[in-house]
Computed example of a mutant assay.
Amino acid sequence: MPADLKIDFVSDVSCPWCAIGLASLELALRRLQGEVRAQVHVQPFELNPGLAPGGEDITEHLTRKYGSTREQQAAARDAIRERGAAVGFEFRKEGRDRVYNTFDAHRLLHWAGLQDPARQQALKKALFAAYFTQGRSPEEHEVLVDAAVAAGLEPAAAREVLASGAYAQEVRQQEQFYLQAGIHAVPAVVINDRHLISGGQPPEVFEQALRQLAGAAA
């Protein structure tokens, strides 16, 4: 009998390492079929909750936040693109133009999770693809609705969620829960509410950790 694991994937849709981490986790879970039966829940984290509508130029943002130069950012972008390709996720060669507020995306993800965790995970992947592969803004409601459709969710219901401001309180509560639990960087993968795997790890790291936890659970 496979071991049942609850996995909370804490992340932001504007975080490239989160896109890598989710792809790596999914690859590890495919390798563990028959050993592990996991349900993945996407949880909210905002890297830049204070961004104004329209976002900020990505080069200016990274320079202000990390003190990095254009050359350093270009090298990091190349490394991220290579890591993504290794796990089947495509990053645009030119990278991102801007960084955006992602709160509405998290509200939509919360709603999706109430419908079906599998569709929530599919929505998360569609949002990553919209931003990092297609260069679209995760702030724009039509982009979010298109991602919902790609995940098999009802577009009219998605538009209603976005227009109404629904689930704002629930998202903020979840964000505070993980901050108070000590999570200040993402991705953070929490297994069975107890075990933490930090960062966009390679699939082999997730595979080994999940196999060990599944054995302990058994």
Rank of each mutant, 00 (worst) to 15 (best):
L109V: 13
V145G: 02
E154R: 13
F89H: 11
A122P: 09
Q174A: 15
Q212P: 01
H61G: 01
E204H: 05
P117W: 12
E82Q: 12
V42M: 11
R96G: 01
A181N: 06
A214L: 09
A118Q: 14
D78Q: 14
I80M: 05
A158Y: 04
A216G: 03
G95C: 01
L27E: 15
G152M: 09
E139H: 00
I197C: 04
I58A: 14
A147Q: 04
L27T: 13
I7L: 07
W111K: 06
T102K: 11
Q212V: 07
L27Q: 15
R30P: 05
F45D: 00
N192K: 06
Y100D: 01
Q39C: 10
H61A: 11
A217F: 03
V10K: 09
V40H: 04
R119K: 15
E139D: 02
L162H: 07
A19C: 04
V36N: 09
V40M: 09
R30D: 13
G135H: 09
T59G: 11
H141Q: 10
D116L: 12
A23S: 14
P117H: 14
V161G: 06
R77V: 00
A151H: 10
K93C: 05
A185Y: 05
G34S: 06
Q173G: 06
S24Y: 11
A122C: 07
R107F: 11
E175R: 15
V10S: 03
Y131F: 15
K93Y: 14
R37N: 14
Y131P: 01
E35R: 15
E154M: 11
G54S: 02
V186A: 06
A216N: 08
A130D: 10
